[in-house]
Amino acid sequence: MSDVAPISIAFAAMPITLTINGHERRLSVEPWVTLLDLLREREDLTGSKKGCDHGQCGACTVLVDGRRMNSCLKLAVSLDGASITTIEGLAEGDRLDPLQQAFMDHDAFQCGYCTPGQICSAKGLLNEGRARTRDEVREMMSGNLCRCGAYTNIVDAVMQVLESRGQIKEAAE
């Protein structure tokens, strides 16, 4: 069986353009490829995680035009022209996003597998500007499962960044 030659896949791929972490990428993608699989398997951006492939766990959360989305539920071809930010694109050079630093300082992860999704989700949450109390953060971060149980530390990390941005509501919980 060793002489099986690689077979080229003869399906019609569609041309799309995505801006991924600031870089314009002209891609040729079959219509059934999800954004998550595109990132992980073709762009070698494995920071976005696959935890369920069904939009149930949030590990694949990325920012699409600044909004948090489950990349496993998005077909890449439906995002032609969009700007995608993944965990690999949050830091500016060596300068971490404040959320990344806060997650480290608060030990807001253990195994780290849900972490990129948590951080991207928190980034989206900050962009939304809706969460201003601990309870609101807990509620609005509930689309991101963490099986290691780092939830309280995740909330601490997000609250610290909210506080530093002056987005916190006084006399909150």
């Binding site: 494995t46 965990i87 971490l96 480290m104 030990d107 780290g112």
Partner: peptide, 24 residues
């Protein structure tokens, strides 16, 4: 001290079993 592998985990650089690139 902070977890020493934290930087790799918060930047997405930590590679898990299905994430090691291999040609072909």
């Amino acid at each position: 001290i902070n977890r020493v592998d934290g930087l790799q985990k918060v930047t997405g650089r930590a590679r898990y079993a299905a994430e090691h690139p291999v040609p072909g």
